[in-house]
Nucleic acid binder design. Sequence first.
DNA 1: CAAATTTTGGCAATCGCTTGCCGTTGCGGA
DNA 2: TCCGCAACGGCAAGCGATTGCCAAAATTTG
Lengths: 343, 343
Amino acid sequence: MTASSAPPASSDPERLPTIRDIAERAGVATSTVSRALSNPQRVNARTRERIEKIAAELHYVPSSQARGLSSGRTGAIAVLVPDVTNPFYFDIIRGTQNQLKASGYTQLLVDTEEATDVELEALRRLRRTADGIILAASRLTDAQLAEAARQQPLVTINRATADAPTVLIDTPGAMVQALEHLASLGHSKVTYVGGPTSSWSTHRRWKAIEEAASRRGMEVTRIGPYSPKTSSGAAAADAALRTGATALIAFNDLIAIGMLQRFRERGVRVPEDVSIVGCDDIFGADFCNPPLTTIASPIEQAGRTAVSMLLAQLDPLRGGMPRKLAVMPTHLQIRASTGPAKA
Amino acid sequence: MTASSAPPASSDPERLPTIRDIAERAGVATSTVSRALSNPQRVNARTRERIEKIAAELHYVPSSQARGLSSGRTGAIAVLVPDVTNPFYFDIIRGTQNQLKASGYTQLLVDTEEATDVELEALRRLRRTADGIILAASRLTDAQLAEAARQQPLVTINRATADAPTVLIDTPGAMVQALEHLASLGHSKVTYVGGPTSSWSTHRRWKAIEEAASRRGMEVTRIGPYSPKTSSGAAAADAALRTGATALIAFNDLIAIGMLQRFRERGVRVPEDVSIVGCDDIFGADFCNPPLTTIASPIEQAGRTAVSMLLAQLDPLRGGMPRKLAVMPTHLQIRASTGPAKA
DNA sequence: CAAATTTTGGCAATCGCTTGCCGTTGCGGA
DNA sequence: TCCGCAACGGCAAGCGATTGCCAAAATTTG
C-alpha cells in the first residue's frame, strides 16, 4: 500500500491521460474532474482551476467515445451529400464545416453517390454515430424521409418535407427571373435541360419555369434527365439544339459548362446562336468561356443555416424557437452566356 | 407479426437494440453475439447465423462509440486539408472517401485553414477520435511532424518526411517538363509565381525549376508568396508582368486562373503576350479561358493510395510490407494558355 | 446558536461492446 | 472405454467518461 504509487508524469508515453490521472494528481474524485471540465459552475472555482491546470499540463483530451457512451451524445454531425466532387456541395460543405467547428462539433462527411440505398444505409449506420444529420439534396421518398426524421434530428437542404426543418434555395424564384431575362432578350423558345429524375429540385425548377412561361406565352420544352456532371453536357447540348430553342436553362452549372464546351466544339456560338443559363454559380461559372449567366445564391450560408437549425433542434433550450424553414435568396447573375435572340 | 417491411419489433420504439437484446432473443451471452458479429470464425456457424438473423430483424447497428471504447479503435480516419474549398483537395477528399468507405472506415474531414496551430490542435484532439490521420499539404515543421507521427499512425500527402509514409505528387519532375515545353516555344525568361511560404511544395517546385533552368541557361525569377486562391491572381498577374518574363509558372491552377482573369481585364493576351502554366489540373482548368496548360496527376488516386498506406500501417499483418513512399506520376497537360514567345 | 439551505465533492452505477480466461462439449485416437 | 484436444460459449473485468444520489461542509436564516 504504497502511498506514492508513482504518478508518472510522462513515463508512459503511449497511454493518454484520463480523468482518473487528473483526479489522482488533484486529489479529488473522477466525478469532480468530469464536472470541473464539462460543467464548470457545478464545482468550486478553486478546485476547478486546479483541475484545469493539471489537465492542461497533462495535455488531457477527453475521449469523445467514452463521453458519448455515457452521455448519449457523440459530438458529431453527419453531412450527407450526393456527390462530394460536385462544386455545389463544396460550398455547402464549407458552410457546414465552418459552423460546426465554431460550435464544437465534428463533421462526418458522407458521399451518398446519388443513390437512395446508399443514403438509407448511411442514415442507418449514423443513427448511433452522429447526433444529427444534414441531408443535402436527398433522393429519399417522402415516406423514407419522414421515417428518418423520426429516428434522429435531421435537417434537409434543397428538399422540402413537412417532417424536418429545411433549408431551401429559392431557385424556382430565380428561374422566373431567368425566364424574364431571356424574354427581354427576345427569346421565346426555351428548353429546360433537366437533372436526375430522383432530384426533387429538378421537378421544382421545371414546374416554376413551366408556369412562368405559360403566363407570359413563352414556349418551353424539357429534355433530360441528365446526370449533373460536365460530361453530360455534350449529350445535353446536342439534344438541346434539336429542340430548336434559342435559349437553354440548365439544371445546374455543371451541365451548362459541359454544354458550353460541346457548343464550342461544334462551332455553335454562345450567346450569338444560343443563350445558356446555369444554376448555382459554382466555382468556375465566372471563368468559363463565355462566363456563365447563372442563378447565384449564398450556398455556403445555406450550409451554415442548416447547421444552426440542426443545433437548435438538438438543444431546444438555447436555440430558441427553432425555425422549420429557411429560404435562401437567389439572384440572377448575368454574365456573357446569354444575349439577344437570333433574329 | 407484420409481414412486409416490419418496423423494429421492439417494445420501446426509442431505444436502439444492443447486443444484449440480441443475446436475450438468441439465448446466448453477449460475448457470443459480439464474437458472432465481429469475429465470425470464432463462433459456430449455426449460432452465428441465428444471431445474424436476429440482428438483422432488429436492425441492429453496433455502437461505434462502445466498440471504440473497449477495443481502442474508432473506425474513423481523419483527413486534414488546409482548405476544403480548394478543388485540389476535393479530389484528394474524393479519393480518401472512396477508399475509406470501401474499407469500412468513416471519414472525418477537418479543415486546418492553412494554419499551423489549427493543424496542431486538430491533431491533438484527433488523437483519441481517429485511428489514423491523413495529412495533406501539412504546414508543420519537421519536428512537429515527427512528434505527430510518433503519437499516431499518420500518412502525409505532398509533404515528405522521414517519420511517416508519404504520398508525393511528382510535380517537381513535371516542372522540368513545363520548363522544357516553354523553352521549346522560345521562352527564355520565366517567372515562378510562388505559393504560401509555409508550403513545402512551393519550395520544392521552385528548387526544381531553378535547377532545371540553370542547366539549360534560362533565366528564372520568383515572385510571391501568394495565397492559393483565384483572388490572389490579380496581384500575382501584375507583379508577374513587371518581371518582364514571357512565361509564367504558377504554384497552382487557382492562382493561374486568377491571373488569367486579370490579364483579360488588363488586355494582356494569353498566350500571345504571355504564357501561363498552372499546376494540379483542377476542376475548371480545362474550361477556363483560355484552357490552362497545367501539370496533371492522378490526385484522387493519391488520396486512395494514402488511405491504403495508412490502413497497412494500422494492421501490418494484412497489408503486407507497408510502403513508406509513393510517388504519383505527373504529366504536362498542354492546352491553350501556352504559346510561342513573343518575338 | 440551532436549523435550514445551498454548495461541493464522492460513490457507484451505468453506457454498449470487447476480450482474456475458463469451463463445457464433442470427437477421434489409444 | 477413457483421455486429450479443439471448438464453442459464458463470465466478468474493463474501456473512459457521465450522472443520480447522498453526505459533508459552508452558508444563510430565524
